[in-house]
Simulated scan of single mutants.
Amino acid sequence: MRRKKTTSTFEALKGIDLVIDEGQSVAILGFNGSGKSTLLKLLSGVMKPDAGSVLTRGQVAGLIEVGAGFHPELSGRENVFLNAAILGMSRSQIEERYDDIVAFSEIGDFIDQEVKHYSSGMFMRLAFSVAIHVDVDVLLVDEILSVGDAPFRAKCRGKFDELIAAGKTLVIVSHDMEMVRELCTRAVVIRKGTVVFDGDVEEAIDAIAA
């Protein structure tokens, strides 16, 4: 009524221009709120850019939020079929890999419980297990491995090594610099929505605090 401005605009990312080659393992680094998770959501197709374009090639799977793509009222078993279908697997493929998915997740005793009763760690185990059993070309991972225990995180890192050896593309958001050093050959540092460094991992880690 008084013509006062009642909304505001926040640009999460500004002028991002990146090319990630097939088979690269790239870390996206920066402080909380810098725009890292937004970038992964754009790559996964969860969000659309207001300007410009995002082009991906091949099958993309994203582990962006714990429990994303899971229905809380359905059991773990039902959610395996639901989430795997969302990621592009056929029912026959899901049935063929179902036992391997559950075995990797290590939550077989709870697979027929509704997932609303799962802990964040159980969510992560099942979500990660489904994603890495998809015939994926690009895997996007956003810090969710921090909710798992040490033995399971080690097993996940081993799976990452397998994907890298198979020539898959990994894009990882993480504050775990040791994991970044072990898995990634390139790092991009984002600060306040803009890229301030793109290159060597060690130099990128130094650039975060610069």
Rank of each mutant, 00 (worst) to 15 (best):
R2G: 10
R2F: 11
R3N: 13
K4E: 14
K5A: 13
E11M: 02
E11W: 10
A12I: 03
A12V: 01
G15Q: 04
L18F: 06
V19T: 15
I20D: 08
S25V: 06
S25H: 11
A27L: 07
A27F: 08
G30Y: 10
G33Y: 09
K36Q: 11
S37E: 12
T38S: 14
T38F: 04
L39W: 10
L40V: 05
L42P: 03
L42S: 02
L42A: 02
L43Y: 09
V46Q: 03
K48W: 00
D50G: 02
G52M: 04
V54H: 05
L55Q: 12
T56A: 03
T56L: 02
T56Q: 03
R57F: 06
R57K: 15
G58Y: 12
V60M: 04
A61H: 03
A61K: 11
L63F: 05
L63G: 01
A68R: 11
F70Y: 09
F70L: 13
P72V: 02
L74T: 06
G76T: 04
R77S: 13
V80Y: 04
F81G: 06
F81R: 11
F81N: 02
F81Q: 03
N83E: 01
A84M: 04
A85D: 02
A85G: 05
L87M: 15
L87T: 04
M89A: 14
R91M: 05
I94M: 02
R97I: 00
V102P: 06
V102M: 09
S105C: 13
S105R: 05
G108W: 10
F110M: 04
F110R: 08
I111M: 12
D112Y: 13
Q113I: 04
E114S: 15
E114D: 10
H117I: 00
G121A: 08
M122Y: 05
M122R: 07
R125F: 07
A127I: 11
A127S: 15
F128S: 07
S129Y: 09
S129V: 06
V130A: 10
A131S: 12
I132D: 09
H133V: 03
V138I: 15
L140E: 04
D142Q: 13
D142T: 07
I144F: 03
L145M: 14
S146H: 09
V147D: 09
G148K: 07
D149Q: 05
R157S: 10
R157C: 04
F160A: 03
D161S: 12
E162R: 10
E162N: 05
L163C: 02
A166I: 03
G167A: 05
G167R: 07
K168R: 15
T169C: 08
L170I: 11
I172D: 06
H175M: 06
H175V: 06
E178N: 15
V180F: 12
R181P: 07
L183E: 12
T185E: 15
V189S: 12
V189E: 13
K192C: 04
G193W: 01
V195T: 14
V195W: 01
D198L: 08
G199I: 00
V201D: 12
E202S: 11
E202Q: 14
I205V: 14
I205D: 02
D206F: 01
I208F: 00
I208N: 08
A210K: 14
